[in-house]
Design a protein around this nucleic acid. Structure first.
Length: 714
RNA sequence: GGGAGAUUAGCUCAGUUGGUAGAGCAACUCGUUUACACCGAGAAGGUCACAGGUUCGAGUCCUGUAUCUCCCACCA
């Protein structure tokens, strides 16, 4: 054996070795599956959920990187042609608003002052500059990503994929332009999808009143200001109280605005709610819009994009914010003696997830994906919804943990057409051009003069939805597509099951007729030791960069893996990370000791029975750990190797064998056993704690052995 | 209004297919004679929320109850 290396005589210092080890891995080019040694027939592929390009690493990223890297390293050591592909997300609205704020702060200018072209140029510059931060932080977690395939959701190749997909769906009639009620975010000045809204509990007042003294039916509303846009009052067809009025029309003046109200009967109305009569405001309520559809009612718009009243006969109301208008209308009701009562209620108000703005439902001409529309799909009539359901129901995709399958199905059942156009600048521009009444959709702009492109961009989840195959070169028929799609595993947070996972399934099954991934592993949120969400205001945010420099990346990774079952939130405390720093130290010292005790070791000998039994027990443990990883139980696998190394190997095996080595009793067998166990355990620990194990491997490997990254698992 | 999850040692949490309860931290005793005090040895600590049931046997399966958390839902 070699003499004991100098570095081992000192305590383990993670910081001093991590960056040079990562550099060594990168230089080996083994992160790229094309360069992996040996013959590898089976592939294993994972596409990294792209972090926001302007972001910095947080514990959510750290957990995702730790889990994925562990699987990827395991499979790579297992002989698979393993690809883990990195990328970043342009995060459309989030990024644009960051830069808008920055420019406003520094120059006092809005995006409209600056103009579309200049604004996009500035965002582009900012993004280029900022992406290195998240990428280098991603590296620092030890992530064995193939950087040669780095992708960006808004680069040229991904843009081609987006345009191609849009055109294909447009031609199939699955993307259409339509005037419908949208979720309008007055703060962000854009439409957003249903999933981008969050309902917030707020107190409001439910006013019960009449439009005018002559009108026979009282109605209830928390938004009386919208009633100037009413065109009907709907009652239940069986409601005897109002039967005599159905079909009649009333002309009145409400809050200074002339209105015509038709009494109609519709089954959606709940007889027992409020007065049992519903004031119908088609332009500003989804339900009412649908009622208007059924009864062929007009749809006057009376609120604009700035959440202000407009287009009304009463000039006093025009330009008023909806909240001020509400006050105005309520006062008017009071003075006219029309207000019957006002009852305080708790209501769920939809707000925009990104900006917090209160959603104003507005009718707008937008682009949609039709999820319920039948179409021919590879010769079979189906709908996008059915495709999404079939992929999971038919077990082509396994969701881990499986309880999320129910959540997924439930979401799809309630899914409505997806609004994909956004009134922001940063993103994939809609590949549609107009000239007069003509409309052209194409991957490339139309020939000829006079065409103008649609101003809108696409929902960021449209491009993210293509991620598993746009990263592999689609729409080109690439070797990567053939080898790595469907991908093996998608690992992400359960909070984006709908936003992202479902959309990837939609696009992939639709365009490729194959699932985007075979398994979905959903991790939970990281919370603090008390189970609270990490937030700046609580001051309980743990920064993964600080933690890894303090305790070592290996220790941080272990803390994120042990006991962290799929789908459950993880409570993370510094104490836990500290415990695995001690573990790293234990591995270090045990290695030194074994190397010291085997300095005079020459060659492997046959193990005596006692040692063979010990070795066999380890092999059982090893098989157990292997099966845990294969079955997505990293939380158990990591704990088992920790427990075995410390409690069994160090506390029992080393303690007993060192006596035999000292006393020269079956010394060679003891030495053989210690070296074999050490070597095999270092290999087993590597996917979890890549740095310390790769460092130690240098001192325990045989001449002919490659670096640990590509050393065989078995 | 629907759905999902949680309830296990003082604290924070594991416990894959049912077979005499585990980890980290904290607290207790002893040990620094040579891998590691970033350590070792030992002891202590739980009627596994509650009530029933299935079973030779249940933290683990079934039914119900309570408390908490999350998700979904256009009740105007």
């Amino acid at each position: 054996m070699k003499p004991l290396p100098e570095i081992l005589t000192k305590p383990f210092n993670a910081q001093s070795v991590e960056s040079s080890l990562y550099e060594m891995w990168e230089k080996s080019e083994y992160f790229n599956p094309d360069n992996l040694p040996g013959e590898r027939k089976e592939t294993y592929s994972v596409i990294l959920p792209p972090p926001n390009v302007t972001g910095t690493l947080h514990t959510g990223h750290a957990i995702m990187l730790a889990i994925q890297d562990t699987f990827v390293r395991f499979k790579r050591m297992h002989g698979y042609k393993t690809l883990w592909l990195p990328g970043t997300d342009h995060a459309a609205i989030a990024t644009q608003s960051v830069i808008e704020k920055k420019i406003y702060k520094e120059e006092g200018k809005s995006r409209h002052d600056i103009g579309r072209e200049e604004m996009l140029k500035r965002i582009g510059e900012f993004v280029t500059e900022s992406q290195n931060t998240i990428l280098s932080q991603t590296r620092s977690m030890g992530s064995s990503l193939d950087w040669s395939r780095l992708a960006f959701t808004l680069d040229e190749k991904r843009n081609l994929a987006v345009r191609t997909m849009f055109k294909k769906m447009y031609d199939d009639g699955l993307i259409y332009r339509g005037q419908r009620i949208v979720n309008w975010d007055p703060k962000g000045q854009t439409t957003i999808s249903d999933d981008e809204t969050v309902s917030e509990e707020r107190k409001g007042i439910m006013y019960t009143f009449k439009y005018s003294a002559d009108f026979p039916i009282a109605i209830s509303s928390t938004r009386p200001e919208t009633k100037v846009g009413d065109v009907a009052v709907a009652v239940h067809p069986d409601d005897v109280r109002y039967k005599e009025y159905v079909g009649k029309e009333y002309k009145m003046t409400f809050a200074g605005c002339p209105i015509t109200i038709k009494v109609i009967a519709d089954a959606v109305v709940d007889k027992d709610f409020g007065t049992g009569a519903l004031g119908v405001t088609p332009a500003h309520s989804m339900t009412d819009w649908e009622i208007a559809d059924r009864h062929n009612l007009p749809r006057p718009q009376i609120i604009n994009e700035y959440a202000k009243m407009y287009g009304l006969a009463n000039e006093e109301l025009n330009g008023k914010k909806v909240t001020d208008a509400r006050e105005y209308v309520v006062n008017w009701l009071k003075t006219e003696g029309l207000l019957i009562n006002g009852e305080e209620v708790v209501q769920n108000i939809p707000t925009a997830q990104r900006t917090g703005g209160v959603i104003e439902p507005l009718p707008k001409l937008q682009w949609w994906i039709a999820v319920n529309k039948p179409f021919k799909h590879f010769g079979i009539e189906t709908t996008l919804k059915k495709l999404m359901i079939n992929a999971v129901e038919g077990k082509e995709i396994k969701i881990i943990p499986d309880r999320f399958e129910k959540v997924y199905f439930h979401w799809i059942e309630n899914l409505r057409d997806w609004c994909i156009s956004r009134q922001i600048w940063y993103g994939h521009r809609i590949p549609v051009w107009y000239k007069g009444d003509e409309i052209y959709c194409g991957v490339n702009p139309p020939e000829g003069e006079g065409w103008t492109q649609d101003e809108d961009t696409l929902d960021t989840w449209f491009s993210s939805g293509l991620w598993t195959f746009s990263t592999l070169g689609w729409p080109d028929k690439t070797e990567d597509m053939k080898l790595y799609h469907p991908t093996s595993l998608m690992e992400t947070g359960h909070d984006i099951l709908f936003f992202w996972v479902a959309r990837m399934i939609l696009f992939s099954t639709y365009a490729l007729n194959e699932v985007p991934f075979e398994s979905v592993y959903l991790h939970g949120l990281v919370r603090d030791a008390k189970g609270r969400k990490m937030s700046k205001s609580l001051g309980n945010v743990l920064d993964p960069r600080e933690l890894s420099s303090k305790y070592g990346t290996d220790a941080l990774r272990m803390a994120l893996l042990v006991g962290n079952g799929p789908g459950n939130d993880l409570k993370l405390s510094e104490d836990k990370i500290k415990a695995y720093k001690l573990f790293a130290n234990k591995i270090w010292n045990a290695t030194r000791f074994v190397l010291e005790k085997t300095e005079d070791f020459e060659k492997e000998v046959e193990l005596i029975d006692e040692d063979q039994n010990t070795y066999n027990a380890w092999r059982d443990k090893h098989a157990d750990i292997t099966s845990d990883i294969d079955n997505y139980r990293l939380h158990l696998a990591s704990e088992k190797i920790y427990d075995y190394f410390w409690k069994v190997f160090c506390d029992e095996i080393i303690e007993t064998r060192k006596v035999r080595i000292l006393e020269n009793k079956d010394k060679e067998s003891a030495q053989t056993l210690l070296l074999k166990l050490l070597r095999e355990q270092i290999i087993t620990i590597h996917p979890f704690m890549p740095f310390i194990t790769e460092e130690l491997w240098k001192y325990i490997k045989n001449e002919k052995d490659n670096i640990l990254l590509v050393t065989s698992w078995n």
